[in-house]
């Protein structure tokens, strides 16, 4: 059985159907991409998968559990992590602390044990700091541990958000437009990071407009247009799909397809 099953998910905002009867599967160990023109409903789909939004219809099954209606923190604990199209970093915390915050769901120190500074909480803190350091190195931010997130160059902010998401120990990682605003070298580094993450056993669902990156990294692609799924398949078939080309007509990305 696939790790994630999306079935007939529909999300409306007033009269607008942002996600319209969308179904697809994500298989364990895969890198799957969700593409589509602006406003196609990609970010809304991510919001539904992580309970930031509640769908009007449909079901989402992750690891055999129906997760619709779970609060976001329960979704994180069950193994789905995400990044945001508009990065949501903790600007006044260091890069290391940002990633350590990501470990919240997999650590235990509570109000009493922390206030009393019980020895096990001190050990837990040390372990979390070490693991956060490893994750920063994994995404190539090893030298930035002590910098405030606000001071990070634009191209590295998305990598920090990915490291923070990994600290939740996810089985499925949702990344929303990680290459936006990155130059060619940074995009190549991002692709490497995605492979390293996949090789650690994390399944990846990626929303991305950079077609070069999408075609390179993904095993399979879902195409949305005005909320509806218009195609699904391996990159080389999607590139030739007439419906996909039509959806992108008039979009600048059409040349890259």
């Amino acid at each position: 059985m696939s790790l994630l099953q999306v079935r007939s998910v529909t999300k409306r905002f007033g009269g607008l159907t942002a996600v319209d009867d969308v179904s697809f599967d994500v298989h364990e160990g895969a890198i799957k991409a969700v593409i589509g023109p602006n406003g196609a409903g990609k970010s809304t789909l991510f919001n539904v998968l992580t309970s930031f939004d509640r769908p009007d219809e449909g079901s989402v099954t992750f690891d055999a559990a129906d997760i619709i209606g779970w609060p976001p923190q329960r979704i994180v604990r069950s193994g789905i992590a995400r990044t945001f199209q508009n990065t949501q970093l903790f600007e006044e915390m260091s890069a290391l602390e940002n990633v350590m915050a990501g470990a919240h769901a997999v650590t235990k120190a509570g109000f009493f044990s922390a206030a009393l500074r019980l020895p096990w909480t001190v050990r837990e803190e040390r372990d979390v700091a070490e693991e956060a350091g490893r994750l920063l190195r994994l995404v190539g931010l090893g030298d930035w541990a002590d910098s405030y997130a606000a001071d990070l160059p634009h191209g590295l902010r998305r990598l920090l958000e990915i490291a923070r998401a990994l600290a939740t120990m996810p089985r499925l990682l949702l990344v929303d437009e990680p290459a936006a605003g990155l130059n060619t070298a940074e995009t190549a580094a991002l692709a490497d990071a995605l492979y390293r993450i996949r090789d650690r056993g994390v399944t990846i669902l990626i929303v991305e407009h950079d077609m070069g990156l999408v075609m390179e990294v993904s095993d399979e692609i879902v195409v949305l247009d005005r909320g509806m799924k218009i195609a699904e398949g391996p990159p080389r078939l999607i590139q030739k799909d007439p419906a996909v080309i039509a959806a992108y007509l008039g979009e600048e990305d059409v040349d890259e397809l």
């Binding site: 992580t50 930031f52 994180v76 915390m93 997999v106 923070r164 998401a165």
Partner: peptide, 18 residues
């Protein structure tokens, strides 16, 4: 850290499972 996180970005804090 969780408190500072939620002060920094509520969405970010939710994504950390807080």
């Amino acid at each position: 850290r969780a408190m500072r996180a939620l002060h920094g970005s509520e969405s970010g804090a939710l994504a950390c499972g807080i």
